[in-house]
Nucleic acid binder design. Structure first.
Lengths: 210, 210, 210, 210
DNA sequence: AATGAATGAGCCTTCATTCAT
DNA sequence: AATGAATGAAGGCTCATTCAT
């Protein structure tokens, strides 16, 4: 069984994703985690510090994965991008809603300890992503591109597709409950789309037409 | 001078964008709008209803603009996409932060009147955007593409680029205050990137290489 | 009937005197004042600010009285001291427990806004008292004395006598409820003692023996 | 090294004097005493019981000293009063702030075990003080005086002078940091003042003028 | 004997809303 | 129509204490 600290972190991840940071009360958290309200302050100091701890708790894993991709010497750039897409889409669409939390809270223009902590995490991850892209450009495998904006596309598209999954279903007119929109299928659809998008936009057109 | 109702809506747009819905108090709103606290309930019924009113207040304009683009018979599909990009980037990066509010609150998985109202707006807008893309495909100007995901890219990239502007600056190592990152330049950079992205991915490669 | 603000101030004076600042909760205050808990913050901003308001509320009157004594041109110094004693003892032993509150909170060595506000009040009052004493010395009616310490005696004795009234009763072995220890008698006893003390210590011995 | 119980008592004396009983938390105490939070309940049962223990811990010593003065057969009454002043001023102004704690908590009108325990201590001490005064009166060395009130003057003046040391400095317009207001000098000033006050008020005027 | 973990009650404050005018 | 006053509920947090070891 998880210890109380981890129970709280799990609950926080779920509730912050669902209701946002402001919309989640420490009493909600305590109830979900099945611990006493005072425990949150006891373990983390404050609700805000809990958020920061959650960020640290998840961020290490995120960056490690990216670094792993970067270190793969034998992989060609486009394969790395595809790995990145697979990995990133899985992360965001998984039950672990961590990334969504990060990006939402970041979109608030409130400056605070918390905001800075989040920005830092995302910045470091962005840094790893950029390495992959720049390597491809340097090796003349990729066209010369605006790398920072390309990251925004990868991250933003995934986020948007995830957040609006239900809407996409509506747009197509299908029942969201229907088989064709289950998580795995939707996820694969997103992955395939992103890989195609990256290929068409990154690779030189002769390669594309080949 | 704006009437009180509009003052409140203006204030709401600014504060919700800055601090989120939950993070903004009715007192904050009243102060910003320079009206009495009771006014919000008086005019809108509740803070939540105010949000819905804000949505209605802005949504009409948003959709009208999209419909306008769609109706332009003489425009070729790629020009329409470019108009769409120009329009959308301007909207989101402008001082009118309405779109950002919509998308953030949508990312909360709370089902409510409010949520549904927002989803509805976005859905209708997405519908107009899809028309443009599908028309291009039907006219064989565009490759066959996953239209819904392409919308996610347009919307998601713009959102992400806007939210992480400061981060992009950091990533490049420049001072956010420096001239090269002022709003207009950044906006144009985003527009150019998106237009290039759309061209390379939507158009057949022969056209691209032409 | 008192307005709510005054009801709160009255309740605060009573409860702070009884239970101290820390020992009194805003719920206690609200209950005593028969107002909603939120009213305390609404009117005063915080519990601490309420304290400061209480200080201001009472301090003006206190100082005015002292200034009045000082301005009395025809009064000889010893009469002024006696007026001061009458006035001060009445104040402290009266149902208005304000002075006791001030002195207790001052005895805490915590530096805070509150503490400084209190110190300020007391300082200004002490200033007025000293004027009376120094005038007597200048006119050669009083012996040369340590004026500041004399104030400490006037204030400290009154405070101590009030705080330990019950103890004095025990010391004499009388029932605190008995007639001879009712408030008026005890007050007069204190006044007479202080006046005698001041006369013997301030006046030159020839006058005393006269 | 002190054992844990004594460490706690030492910490309690310091913190209660500084922040009052209510203003001091068990965690503050534990931290200051460098023991576990649970220790306080473990050793003393409760915070309140700790206070009572502190009172017992110090009270014995206090009274012993007074009894010692009383038993000095060869000392004349005025010398005893002077010894009493020396002793009392030292106690209250010393780093051992026990007496200040007693008097402050006594000034709260809350009836409790604690309050009664304190009242008892002070009563017994007052009893010893009164003996000294009454002996002087019986031996016709002192004028007939209100002994109980005289105790209030001794105790109250010392308390007041100590609590308002900083204020006296301000009143004189000197820098509290300045040499002339260091602890020793201030203490001596208070002692000299009190001795003079006692002499002038207790002794018959012929003696005074002599 | 000693303690880190855990608790329920209570703290002060702020919330969105409604009332009386 | 418009508002200052007022409210009960809920906010995050700290409290003294007790539990399990």
């Amino acid at each position: 069984m998880l210890d109380k600290r981890d129970q709280i972190l799990e609950a926080a991840e779920e509730l912050f994703a669902q209701k946002g940071f402001e919309g989640t009360s420490v009493r909600d958290l305590a109830k979900k985690a099945k611990v006493n309200v005072a425990m949150i302050s006891y373990y983390f100091g404050s609700k805000e510090k809990l958020f920061e701890s959650l960020v640290e708790y998840r961020a290490a894993f995120l960056r490690e994965k990216l670094q792993l991709i970067n270190r793969e010497e034998v992989l060609d750039p486009i394969s790395k991008i595809e790995m990145l897409i697979d990995f990133y889409v899985d992360r965001i669409t998984s039950q672990s809603r961590f990334s969504r939390i990060l990006h939402r809270e970041l979109s608030l223009q409130q400056r605070s300890e918390m905001h800075n902590a989040i920005a830092d995490i995302i910045l470091r991850n962005a840094h790893e992503m950029r390495k992959i892209i720049q390597e491809g450009i340097r090796k003349k495998v990729f066209r010369k591109m605006d790398a920072e904006m390309l990251i925004a596309t990868l991250v933003g598209t995934t986020m948007q597709a995830t957040n609006s999954k239900e809407m996409v279903c509506k747009l197509i007119g299908s029942d969201p409950q229907k088989f064709s929109f289950n998580d795995t299928r939707y996820k694969n659809r997103l992955k395939n789309y992103l890989k195609d998008l990256m290929r068409t936009t990154l690779l030189y057109s002769k390669k594309q037409s080949a």
